[in-house]
Amino acid sequence: MTRKITVEITRSGEIKADFAGFAGDDCVEEADRLAAVLARFGLSVAPAEVRRKSEAEIREELGAATTSRAGIPAAEE
């Protein structure tokens, strides 16, 4: 499955990162890796809030990925 990291940088410089398509704790490891690389680019980051996505959100992601690959709308539940 495609892995996506979407980072929104607000006016104040705060960042909101959305990790999608990661299995298990892979996203936590990838978040740590991103923080380490950002530090080398002169940006220290400290998590202010971490929210696990709901089952519905994950299903929606998977549905979107299926739609993208198959080219047909995902079935609604």
Partner: peptide, 15 residues
């Protein structure tokens, strides 16, 4: 597992 994380940031250049 997928997560959404909000980070506070601080710029720190090389001295």
């Amino acid at each position: 597992m997928s997560v959404m994380t909000t980070y506070r940031t601080r710029i720190r250049l090389s001295p």
